[in-house]
Nucleic acid binder design. Structure first.
Length: 601
RNA sequence: GCGCCCGUAGCUCAGCAGGAUAGAGCAUCGGAUUCCUAAUCCGGGGGCCACAGGUUCGAAUCCUGUCGGGCGCACCA
């Protein structure tokens, strides 16, 4: 298993129901974080620091300038105020505690109060054996403490195949889920199917036309307002085969429910297949229609009325451009203004049926029952509804007297360009670039990595032609190439009887050590990315690691003595060991992103 | 009019919950190929971190305002 695991096994693990992490992997960064913690605790004990002082801002990082040392902490600067002393004076005390540590070769105070530590090289080389020992688990963290996180993403309306507008949220959500799992959370991946509204009724009517078409009727062009896409043709055909002309002339009331169910089922099969192309699988598909049949919105309304959070009232006319047909109506309103929204929000329409928000509110309450934290990944076009749904969860938290952390991450639009021309996407007109097309054209790994090399809350351009034509500009190849190089070297070494070995690690020099130091940052990178909920940080970390490896490799171009495979057997095996472990870190990181760690290009 | 997101090199973007001298790729200029894969690497030039205030030991990062771009502002989904 060590060294042999690939992204398939890693992802398979990620998708099994996660168990509370029990592994306590001591890696270099976690070990030193603990040591600094201990030093600060000792100072609290000696009353040099106030008891129970806030230490959340204390960090341990590699200094930007390597000449400053191996590790750097801001502890003294962050805590000086609480200790009512100067940063440098406090730093003296912390240094006194750390200097005695046998692993530390020097501890210095620098600048405004940084504490810079140097470690014996053996500490870093040990990290390589830690990587080998932990294998696919290197970087796994217990920081999430088994907290149950429900993450809802994609949730595209079941009215057609997935298009590129859905893609970014899907990839970001999936990578975030894997990241949180790796960082010690119990993760449930959820998809909310909006199968109860007017859109799916429209879908059913569109399918009914395709059904009549399949029976031989000429339907002409799809009427305005119906879904024109060809993807509904097979759905109509299947219904024709199953039911003959039974519903061809029947009134809508006789077939609407049936057609809606069949259409939604077919669309969800299609969407699941699209998601599978990206390697995405959800644990739970929650149906709005089922939610309503189960009476969840009624229960939510009753609970909210009990807490005086729903009342019957009349909304003011919308600001700005007032719709022509606007008229005041009394509706059951949720007091979202009490929790920071701009306006109270109706949970039912005037005909008594549930609004989208009314059902969604009940849905979030349901999700919150089985989770400690909620995360929604939404498209930026839903930004306007964030406040109300956050208000709903806040109301629930208040009513239950427990904290329910709830993040809505807004994923900004992707502007798809083809040869410089913006490609317009609209489901209704039937002109959209499907996700399947893009994956087929540029590949899953390119799509995923590209979506993850930008922070999600910034708009991005996906220049189609550029991605296809100039593949070398794509960071994903750069990272994969580093991994492929490592694997290729190992393959080349094997017939010569050379195998990775930790025996001669002391032969490694400064160039190798720099690489090790970067690899050793993976666990801390995982924790930071999970904490910030920003999977893109992993992508950038991997790019840096790959760049460092390529640089190391290229030294061998000028100086054969610096190649991994040299005439020196022991040195070669030590360098193979190093390369093998760098490969392991690349695999672990790529697994989090759902990008394949290829054996060769 | 209001709300949310964004504004960092010519372009595309990072900047690790406030840290040390602002980073990478592309583009541009100058170099490297008897090489374990050049799908690569090394070096140069290029910045008022949109602008103006504020908070503090310290701000690209936090707060306020202005300007610019995007998204949204129904009982839609």
């Amino acid at each position: 298993m060590p060294g042999r695991a690939n992204r398939l096994t890693a992802r398979a693990m990620a998708h099994t129901a996660s168990q509370p992490p029990t592994l306590d992997h001591e890696t270099l960064y976690t070990a030193f974080t603990a040591r600094i913690d201990a030093a600060l605790a000792a100072l609290e004990w000696e009353a040099a620091l106030p008891a129970g002082c806030e230490r959340g801002a204390v960090s341990l990082e590699p200094p930007r300038d390597p000449s400053h040392g191996d590790l750097s902490t801001n502890a003294a600067m962050v805590l000086a105020k609480q200790a009512k002393t100067s940063p440098r004076a406090l730093a003296e005390k912390i240094v006194a505690k750390l200097a005695g540590d046998p692993l530390v070769t020097s501890a210095e105070i620098a600048g405004p109060g940084f504490i810079n530590l140097r470690l014996a090289d053996a500490n870093w080389l040990n990290e390589l054996t830690a990587i080998e020992r932990l294998g696919v688990d290197y970087g796994r963290s217990t920081k999430g403490a088994g907290r149950r996180v429900n993450i809802e993403y994609v949730s595209a309306n079941p009215t057609g195949p997935m298009h590129m507008g859905h893609c970014r949220g899907a990839v970001v959500g999936d990578a975030l889920a894997a990241l949180l799992e790796f960082a010690g959370h119990q993760v449930v991946r959820e998809y909310y199917i909006n199968d109860a509204g007017a859109q799916v009724a429209t879908l059913a009517r569109s399918v009914h036309l395709r059904y009549r078409e399949a029976l031989g009727e000429a339907i002409g062009a799809m009427p305005e307002g119906l879904y024109p896409g060809d993807y509904l043709i097979p759905v109509g055909q299947a219904l024709a085969t199953e039911w003959g002309d039974r519903y061809a002339a029947a009134p809508e009331s006789e077939w609407l429910d049936l057609f809606r169910q069949r259409a939604v089922a077919a669309m969800m099969d299609m969407i699941r297949a699209d998601l599978a192309l990206l390697g995405i699988r959800h644990d739970v598909f929650a149906s709005e229609a089922e939610l309503q049949r189960a009476g969840k919105p009624e229960a939510a309304e009753a609970w909210l009325r009990q807490h005086d959070l729903v009342y019957d009232g009349v909304l003011e006319a919308p600001k700005g451009k007032t719709p022509e047909d606007w008229e005041p109506v009394e509706l059951p309103l949720f007091r979202s203004t009490r929790f920071g929204d701009d306006q109270d929000r109706p949970i039912r329409k005037s005909d008594g049926s549930w609004t989208y928000f009314g059902a969604d509110l009940a849905y979030h309450m349901q999700k919150a029952q089985g989770a400690d934290e909620l995360i929604d990944i939404w498209g930026a076009d839903h930004a306007g509804t964030v406040k109300r749904i956050k208000a709903a969860v806040a109301a629930l938290a208040e009513g239950q007297g427990r904290a329910i952390p709830f993040d809505v991450k807004l994923v900004q639009m992707v502007q798809l360009l083809r040869h410089g021309e913006p490609v317009k996407m609209s489901k209704r007109s039937g002109t959209f670039v499907t996700l399947a097309e893009v994956v087929e054209e540029v590949g899953r790994d390119v799509v995923r990595f590209t979506m993850l090399t930008r922070k999600p809350e910034a708009q991005m351009e996906f220049d189609f032609a550029k991605v296809v034509e100039a593949s070398k500009d794509n960071p994903v190849f750069y990272v994969q190439y580093a991994h492929a190089r490592i694997r290729s070297t190992l393959r080349k070494a094997a017939p010569e009887g050379l195998a990775p070995s930790a025996d001669g690690l002391d032969r490694l020099g400064a160039d190798e050590l720099a690489l090790v130091k970067l690899a050793a940052q993976f666990p801390r990178s995982v924790e930071a990315a999970a904490e910030a909920r920003e999977p893109h940080r992993i992508a950038f970390y991997l790019y840096d690691l790959a760049a460092a490896f390529h640089a190391f490799w290229n030294m061998g171009n000028d100086d054969p003595a610096k190649r991994i495979l040299t005439g020196d057997r022991a040195l070669s095996e030590a360098r193979l060991f190093l390369a093998d472990q760098i490969g392991q870190v690349l695999r672990n990181g790529l697994a989090l992103l759902g990008v394949e760690a290829v054996e060769e290009l």
